[in-house]
Computed example of a mutant assay.
Amino acid sequence: MPKWLKRTGYVLLAFFILLNVMMASQAYYFTHFFPLTEKPATTAQMSGMAKWKALLLGMPFYKSRVVDSLNLPHQNITIATADGQELAAWLIPKDSALGTIILFHGHGSNKSALIPEEKAFYTMGYRVLAVDFQAHGNSTGTACTIGYHEVADVKAAYDYVKAHTQQPIILYGISLGAATILQAMQQYALIPDKIILEMPFGTLQKAAEGKLRTMHLPAEPLAAALTFWGGIEQGFWAFNLKPEDAAAAIHCPVLLQWGLQDQRVTQNETNTIFKNLASHHKEMMIYALSHHQSLLQNEPAKWGKTVSDFLYKQY
């Protein structure tokens, strides 16, 4: 074999190994949360070497701190999951409630990030249960599986409400929360009365592609490697996590919402999920001025009318 061909082979092998080391490290940091003992440094505060290390190998995610600025009477409760986690949640009671809305936040967030939505649903006449996913907020755990184990959190919260009321139950989720609702409803055959989904990702690999886009890195082949290592490190086959396929198990009324400026979740993903929803009562609303963010906070009038119309509509 010619020497140049051997050298080329060694270079390609070294590149392949380096790429996988990088993606394995990125996947680990993306799925593990560390205790917030002090304020982490921003990229602006990092040295040049630290910035390169963060870009290539990832940087730690810290548990986001719950800030209780709800300003509504509420109870701190704990909900046990089937896989041994303890979920911290706020229960906001409501006299003569129309039903209960259970809220699930996005990756790296917690229930206090949804306070505007919690207040809005309360004002619309609903009892509210806002949950910290495992490894988030004040819940137990350190690892996030981007929906694989978090389905147990959705089921536990749903079962908790089901055991305490016979009134309608509505599930609301944003980003990771929305995708996990789809997965949980398929896996456990949950039957809420309605669901509201905001910006769910189509598959875990597409979620990885969205993360890479925000980092200005090429999706291929990095997304596949990131998905592979994320699943291997957490003990499951990540390529099988497909909320867009789980949508076929959804038969209750659905409101699917998405921001036109969203760089993390594409319009094709959103359209696929909407098409796959088996419900005969499904609606999609696009927010022209919003990206991957709280649609309520960015376009409050539109969100308020769309959501209230959906909730009050009789099917």
Rank of each mutant, 00 (worst) to 15 (best):
P2L: 04
K3D: 11
R7V: 15
L18Q: 05
F30K: 11
T31S: 13
H32N: 08
H32I: 02
K39M: 05
K39P: 01
T42C: 10
A50V: 10
A50Y: 07
K51R: 15
A54I: 02
G58W: 08
M59R: 11
K63C: 09
V67L: 15
D68V: 12
I77A: 05
L87P: 10
A97S: 10
L98P: 01
G99A: 09
I101H: 01
H107W: 11
G108Y: 02
S112H: 09
I115C: 04
T123W: 00
M124C: 08
G125K: 03
R127K: 12
L129R: 05
F133P: 09
H136A: 04
I146C: 04
I146W: 03
G147M: 05
A152H: 13
A156Q: 07
A157Q: 02
G177L: 04
A178T: 04
P192I: 02
E198W: 12
T203I: 13
Q205S: 01
K206L: 13
E209N: 06
M215R: 09
H216R: 12
P218E: 10
L222M: 09
A224H: 09
E233W: 04
F236A: 12
F239S: 13
N240Q: 14
K242N: 14
A247G: 12
A248C: 06
I250L: 07
L255Q: 10
E269P: 02
T270D: 01
T272Y: 05
T272S: 10
L277Q: 06
M284R: 07
I286A: 11
L289C: 03
H291E: 15
L296Q: 11
L296T: 05
N298I: 04
G304F: 05
S308N: 14
S308I: 11
Y312G: 10
K313E: 05
Q314S: 15
